[in-house]
Design a protein around this nucleic acid. Structure first.
Length: 124
DNA sequence: CGTCTGACTTAGT
DNA sequence: TACTAAGCCAGAC
């Protein structure tokens, strides 16, 4: 289910569904990138679509969209909450650490859609 | 219908 | 390491 704007669902492709499904799978306290999601969804070169889909996503997805950052870990979509500080607060509340004011520590919290770090890593 | 823009990424300079 | 250009697909004008 995509519903780009007014329920057109003209490109109700599996791409959007996969993106949303992947975003939903992001565990709390972990983050991933647009590119990783795009690649896992089958469109490695369409990272922008992921961003577009998230901007256009239903509330259910927007609720976990703060776990998606760009390849540098920057909160590029932070303004969707009114201010990146809001997104940062959400991430910090889940235990995500930051290397910069609006840049998460990817080395620590990066989650790859194709794998599940939490399953094979318990403590930290 | 052509052009610009965008919650991006990669490669080249 | 930082900036630029190109690729990507869909929406707004």
């Amino acid at each position: 289910m995509v519903r780009p704007r007014d329920g057109s669902t003209k490109y109700n492709s599996t791409f959007a569904e996969r993106v949303y499904a992947l975003v939903r799978r992001i565990p709390p306290g972990r983050v991933t990138t647009y590119g990783r999601i795009a690649r896992a969804a089958g469109a490695a070169r369409s990272a922008r679509m992921v961003g577009w889909l998230l901007h256009n996503a239903p509330p259910e997805i927007a609720a976990v969209a703060h776990r998606v950052v760009n390849r540098h870990g920057e909160l590029t979509g932070g303004w969707a909450w009114g201010h990146p500080a809001v997104m940062r607060a959400l991430l910090e509340d889940e235990g995500v650490t930051f290397v910069e004011e609006f840049c998460v520590d990817l080395e620590r919290h990066l989650w790859e859609p194709e794998d599940d770090p939490i399953a094979m890593n318990s403590t930290e």
